[in-house]
């Protein structure tokens, strides 16, 4: 495991929005099958970090490499590289004019150039994987938040990415729907997916991942196994944050 090449490498990532520096030099190395959970207060740069990985945000400085491909390079084929990275958003961002199956199959037809039958077949398999095979013909407006998010996960999984990015996947959900989505994420982890998850769900942060990153003010303050971070954080800032969040 120690000799496995890294799937995700981030070196000295800086991001500024005008005068505001949101990421102040973040570095991270993720091995295949690792699950990284990123926690931290609002404005710490967690989401920006995630969105820089697939260049939804343009890094100001720094290098990002996914499976050996330098995404931050100038001439890189971004569309091709993005096939290997799946992203799940806090607001789901399902296409309202397409059914659940349509949402999942769109990229299969346009990007992977599958035929309609192949795309639909794989689409149905993906929906089954997240427990929504019977909702294939439903429109997003007809689904609950938890179901929409699971369709969004199926949509991201459909291209069989090597890396999955989750940007606060359960933050917009009613509490009783959170469990369903977390279950799907745990299943994914058990199947060996490499994941980077930004979340406020401390229960998931505690037992869902291999490593926890605590971010504050645009920097990674501390990182380590969940047991260390949660039971024995080294930094004062980490301690303060955990106290605020866990004793809410």
């Amino acid at each position: 495991m120690a000799d496995a090449p890294f799937l995700l490498e981030i070196d000295g990532l800086h991001k500024s929005f005008g005068d505001l520096e949101v990421l102040k030099g973040v570095s991270l190395r993720v091995r295949p099958r690792e699950v990284i959970i990123v926690i931290g207060p609002s404005g710490s740069g967690k989401s920006t970090l995630l969105r820089c990985i697939n260049r939804l945000e343009e890094p100001t400085r720094g290098v990002i490499r996914v499976d050996g491909v330098e995404l931050s390079a100038r001439g890189v084929d971004l569309n091709r590289a993005r096939k290997d990275i799946g992203m799940v958003f806090q607001a789901f961002n399902l296409y309202p004019h397409l059914t659940a199956l349509g949402n999942v199959a769109l990229a299969l037809r346009k990007v992977l150039r599958m035929s309609r039958q192949e795309a639909e077949a794989r689409g149905r398999r993906m929906l089954e994987r997240v427990g929504l095979a019977d909702k294939a013909s439903a429109y997003p407006g007809e689904l609950s938040g938890g179901q929409q998010q699971r369709v969004a996960i199926a949509r991201a999984l459909a291209l069989e990415p090597k890396l999955m990015l989750f940007d606060e996947p359960t933050s917009a959900l009613d509490p009783e729907l959170v469990g369903g989505v977390l279950r799907v994420m745990r299943d994914l982890r058990d199947e060996g997916m490499t994941m980077v998850v930004v979340t406020h769900e401390m229960s998931f942060a505690r037992d869902g991942g291999d490593r926890v990153l605590f971010m504050d003010g645009g920097e990674v303050v501390e990182e380590g196994p969940p047991s260390t971070i949660f039971r024995n954080p080294a930094h004062q800032r980490t301690r303060e944050f955990l106290q605020r969040v866990l004793h809410a």
Binding site: N79, A91, N93, Y95, H97, V111, R155, A156, L159
Partner: peptide
């Protein structure tokens, strides 16, 4: 059209033109 629609489409590897034609314009 909310930016999230563009982001979701582009994040699955659709080109700008494909995102425009298949996701944004129908809406």
């Amino acid at each position: 059209i909310p930016r999230g629609q563009w982001e979701a489409a582009r994040s699955t590897g659709l080109s700008f033109g494909q995102a425009l034609a298949s996701v944004v314009m129908p809406q």
